[in-house]
Every structure is written in structure tokens, then in C-alpha cells.
Amino acid sequence: MTAPRASLPTPAHDSRSWGEIGLEKRHSNERRIGILLIAASAVSILTTVGIVAVLVFESIGFFAEVSVWEFLTGTRWTPLFESKSFGVLPLLMGSLLVASGAALVALPIGLASAIYLSEYAQDGVRRVLKPVLEVLAGIPTVVYGYFALLYVTPLLRTVWPNADIFNAASACIVMGIMIVPLVSSLSEDAMSAVPRSLREGAYALGATRFEVATRTVVPAALSGIIASFLLAISRAIGETMIVTIAAGATPQMTLNPLRSVQTMTAYIAQTSMGELPHGTVEYRTIFAVGLTLFCVTLLVNMVSGVVLRRYREVYE
């Protein structure tokens, strides 16, 4: 088909010169939009700065009365008792115990699901399964908490009858399940990003599907997988509801998951709901613990940032 080019309508020449379109107005509009967008992002930045400032400010008040050394090395946490002790280690240990237990549950299950989704599942199955798995992340944590207390704990106590009613293990298991989607979804993203040509290269050498997954895809996606692990761990350290409901309120130095413990988050939740007089040292413990919690999660996030950069695989 030969289009009659000559008959195409030629565009009428624009008689306006460039300056007349309203350069002035457009520029001032652009400026206004720019300011609006900066303001929007400033809200979150300023809030963060504000929170950190309050944490630091109140903590300074706390450390005026309690030495940093006592706080960081003391092994008893009894700020609300007659004989006051302000050693944060029991709370820190509780947090780390619960977080590592949750990681122990979530990392293998999450990685296995990611391998299944990325390497084994057919397209249709993956399209259905991935969102379903992500729904797990949308369940309110308070529901998880009661699930832990009312279903998982009795189950644990049939196996270990001497386990405490409130115990770390129950919180670990349920929190682990809660963060599985975080691990599986992000790991699956990292694994799907591994180029098809690498998989083909491995298949062509006689690798089985499992060998392709474990020896080619997982190593190539390692930085993303580790980042997903660290993100999940930092989420577990910060998680509050499950541990408040199921893990107990007994700050103690123990590595036994069947015992009742208290995490930093649970302490803050429990204490801030109490009726502590404003400005007392007991009241300020909340901020000191909050600052510690902030530092720990910040550390984990920074480590994950470094890992992401250092182990970033360039595929081609």
C-alpha cells in the first residue's frame, strides 16, 4: 500500500513565538510544585529527626541518674521494684533470643519457599501463591500474638509440660511464621532477577533443577537473599505485639526458650501503658530502652546495606 504522501495535511505554522507560551507562569508553577514535593518528603524526615531527638533528650536525663556503664552491663532489670536495677542486658537478651528463634524458623522456610516459587513453581502457580503468601504479612500482629498464646503455647506444653505459660519459644515460632513472607518474597525477587542464561548454562552442564537452584541461582542472588534475612531479623527485633502477649514480662538472662522473658519492645509497651509519673527515672527508662532498640535495628540495617553493596553480584 502506497500512502499518498502529498495529500497528508501539513501542520499549520505556529505563529506564536516561544516566549509567548507563558514561560513566566510555567516556571512559577514548577517552583510551587517543587516546594510541595519537598514539603511532603520533609514530613517524614522531620518526624524521624524529632523522634530521635526526643529519644536522645530523654535518655540524657536518664543517664544523668543512671550510669551508662550500669545500664549496658547490668544483668538485672528491675526499675519498677523497690530495689531498683537498670541493667538492660536481660531485655536485650530477650529481644535477641526471640529474634534469633524467629530467624531460625523463618530463614529456612522462607528460603525454601523462595526456591520453590522461583525455580519449581509454574507461572500460574506462582502468580497465585506469591500474593497468598504475602497475605500472611497483612495479618494484624495482635492476632498472631493471641494465636501464639492460645494455640501454639498449649501445643508446646503438651510436648514440654514444664514450659512457662508465657514463653519465648511460642513467640519465636509465630513471629517466624509472620516474617516468612518477607524472606520468601524478597529472596524470590532476587532469584528471579538472576538471568535465564546462567540457569541455562548450569542445565547444559547436566545440573538437576535442585543443583541449578542451590549452586547457581542462590549464590548469584546471595546479596539479595542476605538482605532479606537481615530485614526480617530487624523486623523481628522491632516486633512488639506478639512478644507482649505471648513471651511474658519477666526480664531475665536466659537462653532457654521455654522460659518467660521480656523483650525491649514488650517492656516499652507494658511500661508506657502504666501510670508512671512524667519526668521520673522510671518513666525515662522507656526512652533509654527505646534508644537502645533504635541503635540495634539501625546496626542491623546498616549491616544489610554493607552486605548488599559488598556482595552485589554483577551477572554479566
Binding site: P195, S197, L198, E200, G201, A202, Y203, A204, L205, G206, A207, T208, E211, R215, T216, P219, A220, E313, V314, Y315, E316
Partner: peptide
């Protein structure tokens, strides 16, 4: 088994993001 006896080289070079040595021993190892 077929692929262990009939090897293949692809259009675009696709070495694994590993060492030269590990690339060569990948097939024999598995």
C-alpha cells in the same frame, strides 16, 4: 544424563559469577 554427554555453548557468554577455576569444575563436581 543427555546434557552430561551433549554439551552446549550459548550465544552470549554466560560464565557463572564465580572464579575461573570454579566455572570449569562446576560440571565435573555435580
Amino acid at each position: 544424563d543427555v546434557r552430561r554427554r551433549i554439551g552446549m555453548v550459548f550465544q552470549k557468554p554466560n560464565p557463572f559469577p564465580k572464579s575461573i577455576y570454579d566455572n570449569v569444575v562446576f560440571g565435573p563436581k555435580i
